[in-house]
């Protein structure tokens, strides 16, 4: 089963006022566990809204968000009938069962943000502690872990995000933009979420800063086998790091599938105004000129090996 399922999810901002705005319109989606899914779309297509729905920060106006099959916004009344017959509640009286189920739901709600770690857009504004170390430790501390465990997680997160030991004792306000971004990312990774959601993690960073961030995310995904969702504007990054891609446009999902499937509809993407990777365009025009390179090339590395193959072929002729 898919790790995350959005079941007919709609979201309306300022419902019932003249400023009403439909940010998501009847979205149905499944997101595979254990891989990196990229979400791409124009500004205002509802990406951020969708991401905030995954850890319960925003509740869908209509529809359900399922994590491992459990509706994360369910109330006691929703599940009572279903859970009443489970062995741990079956023997209790109605009143006690209600109380126990209510407590369980509350516990799940509180734990949700640790299971689904959300890094918001431009997350550097969330830094507030005296030192980088303490700031990264904020999440784990809220989880109620021991000091030892907190320390271990902070150091681990710092390694993933390439934050050197010398930075840990500095004030987060003295860092560069890219470093702040990495500290904010580490603050979420330190909670070891099974689902890591990143809203435009590399927006506004230079190419080096981008690859620091994305490499860190990929390392985390590979080592922990967690599910990762990345919102991005850049097709290049999507092509390089993502297994699946979701294309959003105007509050709806335009296309969803593996990287290859989605990028095969290059013209459609171009029509919504999204850029296809530069290298894919270069390869397409090479093919038009008769160079026999394959169609599905999205990264420079793939292009290099494809061209090498072409040259080798010509050499043998």
């Amino acid at each position: 089963m898919d790790k995350i399922i959005l079941d007919h999810v709609s979201y309306i901002y300022s419902a019932g006022t003249p400023f009403e705005q439909k940010a998501l319109d009847d979205i149905c989606l499944g997101i595979r566990g254990g891989c990196i899914t990229g979400i791409i779309g124009h500004t205002g297509s509802g990406k951020s809204t969708m991401m905030q729905m995954l850890n319960g920060l925003a509740k869908p106006t209509f529809g359900k968000v399922l994590l491992d099959g459990y509706d994360i916004n369910s109330t006691m009344e929703d599940v009572f009938e279903e859970w009443r017959i489970l062995p741990e509640y079956a023997s209790l009286s109605d009143r006690k069962a209600k109380k126990a189920i209510g407590a369980e739901i509350k516990k799940r709600k509180a734990g949700l943000c640790f299971r689904v770690g959300l890094v918001m857009q431009y997350p550097e504004y969330q830094l507030f502690e005296e030192t980088v170390f303490r700031d990264i430790a904020f999440g784990p501390r809220n989880m109620g872990l021991s000091e030892e465990e907190i320390r271990e997680r902070v150091l681990e997160a710092a390694v993933f995000t390439d934050i050197g030991a010398e930075l840990l004792d500095k004030s987060p306000f003295d860092l560069s933009g890219g470093q702040k971004r990495r500290v904010a990312l580490a603050g979420v990774i330190a909670m070891r979420p099974e689902v890591l959601v990143l809203d435009e993690p590399a927006a506004g960073l230079d190419p080096l800063g981008r690859s620091f961030i994305f490499d860190g995310i990929r390392d985390y995904q590979r080592k922990t086998g967690s599910t990762v969702l990345i919102v991005s504007h850049s097709m290049e990054d999507m092509a390089r790091y993502c297994d699946d891609v979701i294309v959003m446009s105007g509050a709806r999902v335009l296309r969803k599938g593996s990287r290859e499937e989605v990028f095969a509809h290059v013209e459609e993407l171009a029509r919504t105004g999204l850029d296809i990777p530069q290298i894919t365009r270069v390869m397409a025009s090479l093919r038009e000129r008769g160079v026999p390179v394959p169609k599905n090339i999205y990264t420079v590395e793939e292009a290099v090996s494809a061209l090498k193959a072409v040259f080798a072929e010509e050499g043998t002729k």
Binding site: C113, F114, V119, M120, Y125, F138, M191
Partner: peptide, 16 residues
């Protein structure tokens, strides 16, 4: 708006 954003970011890190 900013307050809301910051609150959301800290809630996402488990602040209560």
């Amino acid at each position: 708006e900013e307050t809301e954003k910051i609150m959301n970011a800290q809630k996402a890190r488990g602040a209560d």
